[in-house]
Each structure stands twice: as C-alpha cells, then as structure tokens.
Design a protein around this nucleic acid. Structure first.
Lengths: 209, 209
DNA sequence: CTGATCTGGTGACTGCAGTCACCGTTCTGC
DNA sequence: GCAGAACGGTGACTGCAGTCACCAGATCAG
C-alpha cells in the first residue's frame, strides 16, 4: 500500500511531486517508541531511513565502551546506513531512537537511482555528510584535547539545545555512557562544574546557568 | 590554456570524454614539492583539488597540538575542500603535501553543476565521503580506547602500507605530531613495542616485524 | 676543527581519569 | 512495611601519558 503523499510532503521540503510519488510508492513509514534499536554494528542495510519526527542517537561501541557520535533530528538521515546500503557493506555504528520517532524507510537499491535523478535528494545526502563530518571532527578535537570537564560541559550545552530544555533530566550513568567514561567520573566532574558556577544540580535535573 | 586530455585521462578512470573535455577547459594542474601547504583552517575554498599523483596529509590542529586525520592518495579528493567549496564555508582542517604531488584543481562553482550532470563524479565524491567517514570513525575509536601503544602500532602499519615501504624513516618528533602526543612518549612506546618484538629500530628506520 | 643543531634516550614528577569499595537515600514492587 | 534495585556521593588507589630537565651521539655549517 503506497503512502499518502500529503502526509510525507510537509516533512520533505523542496522535494518535487515526481520524487514524492516514487517515495510514496516504494517507501514505508515506521513509528517507533523511544529506546528501539534501528541499526547495529555489523548489520547490512536494505532500507535507508530518513527521520521525519523524533530523535535518533548514533554511537560507536568498543568493548562495552560507548561514545555518542551525533543525533539525527527531523528531515535528517543516517549516512552510515546510506553508505552501508549503497556499497552493501556492514554498518560500523549503532543507532537507537532516543525519543518516539517516525522513520521514512527507503529501499537502498532505489535510492541509488534517485540520487542521480533528483538533485534535491542528492543535495540532502551531501548535506548530511558535511554535517556528520564536521560533528565527528568536533568529537575528535574534544577527545584529543582530553579534559573531561570541557567535554561534559559541551555535551550538556548540546543536549540542552537539541532537546530545547533548560533543565536536563539525565542519569549520571547515562551521561557516562554517552561520553565513554565512568559514572563516578561524571559525578565528580559535575560537582566541579557546579562549584565553578557553570551548572546547578537540582532534584529536577541539571540546569545550565 | 586548456589541459591536455590525454594527460589527465589515465588518472581519472571511468570519466567520459565530455566530462574530461570540461575539466580540461576549466581546470588546471599544479605540481607541488613535499611539505607545501594546500589548505589551512579558516580558509575559503575556490578550487577543489583531486590528487593525481603523490600524497597529501590532512590533519586538525587545536592549540598547537596536531592530529593526523588521513592521507589523500592518487585519484582521491579532499572532501573538506569539496564541502567548504560547495557551501562557501571555511575549512576546518589543514592539508599539506607529504610527497611531491600533482593536483588537478577544479573550480568549485563548476563542480556543483558537474556532480549533477556526471554520475561518475558524483560517485567519486560519495566514495570519498564514505572513506573519510570510516577513517574518522577509526580515529575516534582509537582515541576513545586511549592506549598509545595500539595507536602507535596501527599508525606504523598504516604508514608502511601507504608508502609501500617496510622500513620507515621517521623522526620521533614527527610521529608525535601526527598522533598528537609528545616526543618522549613516542620514544618510550617505541622501545616498549621493540621489547615486545613488534618492531625493530635500526639506523635505517623503524621496521615492522 | 668546532660550535650549533638535531635527534633520541632516560629518570623524576605530576595530574587526570579510570577503578574499587563502600555507604546513604530514594524509589519500586510485592 | 520491607526487600531490593537504582542512584549518586566519596575516599583511596592506580596507571598512563604528558612535562621537565638533562645528557650523549650524530650531523651540519662555517
């Protein structure tokens, strides 16, 4: 059953009618609650997702040590699945829904033709590559510089901007996972940041001042 | 003066005659000795280079601490200049010639049209993005895991493969720069690797066993 | 030849973050 | 209400790597 064009159109600005019709015919929409796995390392990809609504977290894992790479928001896509789908190679990363999300799934074999035929789609993926490239560069720079306090503070700023919340309700354990460190370290550094007056910890969560 | 098509054709496999003619008309070739700066952080890009021969080193710098990101070999391109050129934003990275190199320079405004018109060029840049994405992911993973001895050993393996030399004539200082650490640390770790029998240090250079 | 520069080898120290052990508080299910 | 889990706070210890100081051999310039 084809998708309703009127439903997907508002989420895909600039897409022309012809492309929307093709997408409606070949794609499907998947609604997922928070915390669902979308992609795991080593997995082969047949469907490339575009996030219509919600938030998807992308991270790498090495020997049960995780590191957050970036978030995929609405009208954004996952270049790892895109590249894995096109080259038929396995994924190197994990992706899970952080919030309840709606994904538009496009078959990778069709995508290969579409990007040549529809410049708007081509541009979208180039834009995604640029975005992720610079985000990963930032990640590399922050890892290189070391300094947990900087990394943690920037993480909180990012998270706050992304979620649009001034008070972040996060477990220390969860932060530790996303930064690839230990819970005790997060506790220590948060206290340090609090003493420096950069944040405040209340029972509602962490507030950036 | 247009370039000689016969000269560039062997370096650009799969490029059709029409595209080659356009490139010959609009592009130029630049021959550079080793150690020349091609791109620096903050710079805007008008010409996008494709490496025809030689080797170009790409690295990031943060407060006089460098980190090697990857090398660009022949028939490869620099996605940072590509993305910076297309979006008219400044470069985030540095690039210098590591060996004497020949660069094919293409004007960024033309590239924008060409990638839509010639799928082979589009594929080339997608392929480059994929390549760099996975290389940066490897870099992130090795930084996350920490362990200088692993990083240094992998660095030597990579370098050896890339240069096609079994014996690497490198200064400790130079290695330290590319890994973003200090010279003494490299000396120590190299000795450790030597004691573990993984490498040998002779006056000719470092040999991987 | 000679002083200067480059290279790398080494010991001592420091600081950060990762780990361990343990404890108190709050929340949850039965 | 109670047991158990989840959460976070803390002190002590450890290990790695970054830094400092210094030295010795090789190489180079004049």
């Amino acid at each position: 059953m084809p998708l309703d064009i009127a439903e997907i159109k508002p989420h895909l600005p600039g897409f022309n009618e012809e492309l929307l019709a093709e997408i409606a015919a070949a794609g499907s929409i998947k609604e997922l609650p928070a915390g669902m796995e979308i992609l795991r390392e080593g997995q082969y990809v047949k469907m490339i997702p575009i996030v219509l609504a919600g938030l998807v977290k992308v991270f790498t894992r090495i020997e049960d040590k995780e590191l957050l790479l970036y978030y995929i928001g609405s009208t954004q896509s996952c270049i790892m699945s895109f590249s894995a789908g096109l080259t038929n190679s396995p994924s190197r990363i994990f992706a899970i829904t952080e919030e309840p999300s709606a994904l538009l799934l496009l078959p990778s074999d069709k995508i290969n033709r579409w990007i040549k035929q529809y410049p708007v789609l081509n541009d979208l993926f180039y834009h995604q590559y640029n975005l992720r490239y610079t985000e990963m560069l930032d990640t590399i720079n922050s890892l290189l510089f070391g300094r947990m306090d900087h990394r943690l503070y920037n993480y909180l700023l990012e998270k706050s901007k992304l979620k649009g919340e001034k008070i972040l309700d996060l477990r220390h354990k969860q932060i530790a996972n996303e930064l690839g460190t230990a819970r005790e370290v997060v506790t220590r550094v948060l206290k340090k940041l609090e003493q420096e007056g950069k944040i405040r910890q209340t029972e509602a969560g962490i507030e950036i001042t």
